[in-house]
Design a protein around this nucleic acid. Structure first.
Lengths: 208, 208
DNA sequence: TCTAAACTGTTATTGAAGTAACAAGTAAAA
DNA sequence: TTTTACTTGTTACTTCAATAACAGTTTAGA
C-alpha cells in the first residue's frame, strides 16, 4: 500500500471515531455524503480518502460501516498497540494522560517522566512516573514507539535526542522550542503560534 | 496589506519569539540563513515571508532585528490586546492558562468558564472563573475576541454557537467534536487524530 | 422491460504552500 | 579602483491537498 497523505490519515482517525458511534446504534450502511456532513467536509473528499485506502462501497447503498472501521484499523493501527510515553508531567502532560486513558484507541500509555521528586514513583491512572534520568533505560525496556514532549522548552532538544537514540520513532513536541531530529517522525504543536494565528484572523477586515 | 497565508502568520510568531531573544543579547542585524537555521526552515522561506510583510533588509548586512520585531508586531498584534477566554477549566484549560500567563504576548486572558461549583468564583493567576451560564453576559461585557474550548465534546457545538452570537471572532476547538461555525475563524486541534497520525508515520516502512 | 435518479470511483483541474533559480546590488578584499 | 563573494528580493517551478467533473453501475419506479 502506498504511503497516505498526512491529511488523509488524520481524517481516517475522524471517520473511525464517528463511524464507531453509528455502529453502536446499529446503523449498517452509510453514504459518503452522510459522512461528509458529520465532519463538515465534502463527499468527494470522503470518497477519495476511501479510494486511497482501497475500500469499496456498494452502489446506491453506501459503505458497510463495520467493514470500513475494520479496514481503517488495519491501516492506522499496529498489530500490537503503539507504546507511548509522556515526558514532562505537568498540567498539559496530565491532560494528555486523561485523553489517552479516557479514549479507547490503539495507543497504550506506558510511562511518564518528570524531574519533580514528588511525582517520581507515583502511579497515575495505572501509569508509573519515572525520573527523566531513566529515559534511555525505560524506553528501551518497554520498546516505546512514541513520546509526547510537555516539558520546559530548554530541555526539549536534549530530551528528544535521548529519546530517538533510545529507539523512539515518533515525537510530538508541545513545547515552544523548535526541534530538529533525524530518524523519527516529528510533529510540532506550538500553542502560542496557534493562538497568535487565530488572533490575526479575528481581525475585522478578514471576516468573510 | 494583503491577507497573509496561515503558515506565514504562524512563522511570524516564531520569528518574533527567537528574534526577541537575540535582541536581549544585543544582536543588531541578522541574515535570512541565520533565522532559517534557528527555525530549521530554508532561508528562501524566511525571505519570502519577510517580502510578504513588506520588510526590507540591508544588502550584505541582513535584517535589523529591532525593526523587524516591531513590524511583525504591527501585523499580528492589535492596537489593544486581544481578549481571550478559556471555556472549560480542566487540566488542559489550566495548561493553557499557564501558557498565557507565563508567556509575554499580545493576548490578554480575561475570563475562565466552568460548570463545577467548586471552581466557579475562584481566581486563578488573577483571572476569575465564571459559570458557563454567564457566557453571553461576560463575553459581551468584556468584549472578548477569542475563546479556547477545552470542555467535554458534547457541549462544544452549543457553546461555540453561544460564543459567536455573543461576539467572539476566533475559536480554537481542543475537543474531539467537530464544529461548524459561521462568522468566526475556527481552528480545530484534535489531539487524538494528531496522535494517531504520528503513530501511523512511526511504522518502520516509512522511515526515510 | 425500460427509464431515470442516485451514488460510487476515478481522472482532471484548481489552489495553496514550499522550493529553486537568478537578477541586482553592496561590502570587502585585492 | 576593480573584482569577487555574498545576500537580498522576486519570479518561476514543483509538490501536496482539495475540489470539480464525469463515467459507470445499480436500484426503484413507470
Amino acid at each position: 500500500m502506498e504511503i497516505l497523505p498526512e491529511r488523509t490519515v488524520e481524517r481516517l482517525s475522524h471517520y473511525r471515531r464517528v463511524l464507531s458511534k453509528l455502529l453502536e446504534i446499529n446503523k449498517e450502511y452509510i453514504y459518503s455524503h452522510e459522512i461528509a456532513k458529520l465532519l463538515h467536509i465534502t463527499p468527494v473528499q470522503v470518497r477519495r480518502d476511501l479510494m486511497l485506502i482501497g475500500h469499496s462501497g456498494t452502489l446506491r447503498k453506501g459503505y458497510r460501516i463495520r467493514e470500513l472501521i475494520s479496514l481503517i484499523g488495519t491501516i492506522i493501527d499496529n498489530p500490537e498497540k503503539y507504546k507511548v510515553a509522556i515526558v514532562g508531567f505537568g498540567k498539559l502532560g496530565h491532560a494528555l494522560l486523561n485523553y489517552l486513558t479516557e479514549n479507547e484507541s490503539n495507543l497504550h500509555l506506558v510511562a511518564l517522566f518528570d524531574t519533580n521528586p514528588e511525582k517520581i514513583g507515583t502511579t497515575n491512572n495505572n501509569v508509573i512516573c519515572y525520573s527523566v534520568d531513566r529515559i534511555p533505560e525505560i524506553i528501551k525496556r518497554y520498546k516505546i514507539d512514541m513520546a509526547l514532549l510537555t516539558l520546559p522548552p530548554q530541555f526539549a532538544q536534549l530530551t528528544a535526542n535521548q529519546l530517538v537514540e533510545s529507539g523512539v520513532k515518533g515525537i510530538i513536541n508541545y513545547t515552544s522550542s523548535i526541534l530538529s531530529i533525524e530518524g523519527a517522525f516529528l510533529e510540532q504543536y506550538d500553542m502560542i503560534a496557534s493562538l497568535e494565528k487565530v488572533a490575526y484572523f479575528t481581525k475585522p477586515e478578514f471576516y468573510l
